[in-house]
Amino acid sequence: MNTLFSPLQVGNFSVANRVVMAPLTRNRAPGRVPNDLMVEYYRQRANPAAGMGLIITEASQISPMGQGYLDTPGIYSPEQVAGWKKVTDAVHAEGGKIVIQLWHVGRISHSSLLPEGAAPVSSTSRPAKGKTYIEGGFAEVSAPRALGIDEIAATVQDYRHAARCAMDAGFDGVEIHAANGYLIEQFLRDSCNDRTDAYGGSIENRVRFLKEVTEAIVAEIGGGRTGIRLSPITPANDIGQDANAQALFGQVMSVLAPLGLAYCHVVEGATGGPRDLTDQGIAAFDYAALKAAFPGAWMVNNGYDRALALETVASGRADLIAFGKAAIANPDLSRRLQADLPLAAVDFTTLYGGGAKGYTDYPVAG
């Protein structure tokens, strides 16, 4: 019987256990380039005998227009590739596996973060209600403009280029960020997408951008090195619920299934919030139906403790469990879970920005 600590083949690469470090924005990349502090942070969590079977990096923008928060890294320039290569070399030296999350925030941005003070881009010109982190602190996001058809095609190529850069940087794979109310999900959900062209209206049209992005990445680096993250009912970043989320994500699965992806990473419930949203008037969502339609490895995330993670893998409901706050505060997370040792608590005051404190100074057990 599979356990949380069994090895697994995930597309083109294997992992030593099913404990995954979720993608976690930490805002410690001044100049958008990975640095030596980040090398140490990921290295500490890389040894699968103690840490993670798989590391998913913090979300990393695919282009200058994809940035939404201060001091987040990118994966599109030679300098960024060189910086990430130091990270992947350190992780691989510890015997670990690492993929990078490819990110375009869409309308969840601020003009001060974008080239020449440009407006953010999205599926829509309607602004989100929310804030982002810029020089000087938090600020309301800027009003976006809707991408033109030619710009959509160019953005697809930005994803392709970022995937190639990831391979040049030595990553084992990439994860397409199609969750949490960012650009791809701004196209997916009818609560946000108000287009009347080939990328709006019907479910098939709204899934078109995700389809083209995923196909372009698979053509560039192969399905076995490509994962995707989805969050079918999260209300993150003012995205709003889709009128028929089950049908929408059923269509997403029908698009993804033939592409031979390594894994699908699903945020269950509200990102960083309750797993069960029925008390908010949202009908129960059938995640099992999506898993049944997807041939690759199935990864789940949100609120998993040791008992739930063990039971979920043993029952076959998922193949991999992604941990967020626990992975930040416990570099030796898999060892602690296996031995049922207490988990250190995360320091919420040091999550975003800063230096080594609350980043590379969490101790290992014992």
Rank of each mutant, 00 (worst) to 15 (best):
N47Y: 08
V252C: 15
P48L: 14
P7M: 02
P144A: 10
T350Q: 15
L102F: 05
Y352F: 15
S315N: 08
K325Q: 14
A344Y: 15
F13Q: 08
G106F: 06
A345Q: 15
W84Y: 06
T124D: 12
Q280K: 13
L37E: 10
A90H: 00
V105G: 05
P73C: 15
G324S: 11
G96M: 10
R206N: 05
D197S: 06
G353N: 11
Y359Q: 03
R335N: 05
S63P: 01
F323Y: 12
I62D: 00
L341H: 10
I233M: 11
R225A: 15
A329T: 03
H177S: 03
N193H: 04
Q101D: 10
G51D: 08
G281R: 07
R26V: 03
L320K: 07
M1G: 11
I152Y: 11
L248W: 06
V39R: 00
A153C: 07
G137H: 01
D347N: 13
A46S: 13
K86H: 09
M52R: 01
D158C: 11
P73H: 13
Q44G: 02
R107Q: 03
E220V: 03
P78A: 14
E151R: 02
T132E: 09
V87K: 05
A245D: 04
I75D: 04
A143M: 09
R107S: 14
V364K: 10
G51V: 07
L210Q: 06
A128E: 07
G51R: 08
A166Y: 07
Y287R: 02
P34H: 09
A82K: 10
P23T: 12
L4I: 00
R145S: 11
I108W: 08
T57L: 12
T196H: 05
G260W: 14
G136K: 06
Q280C: 08
Y199K: 03
G66F: 11
L8E: 06
N244K: 00
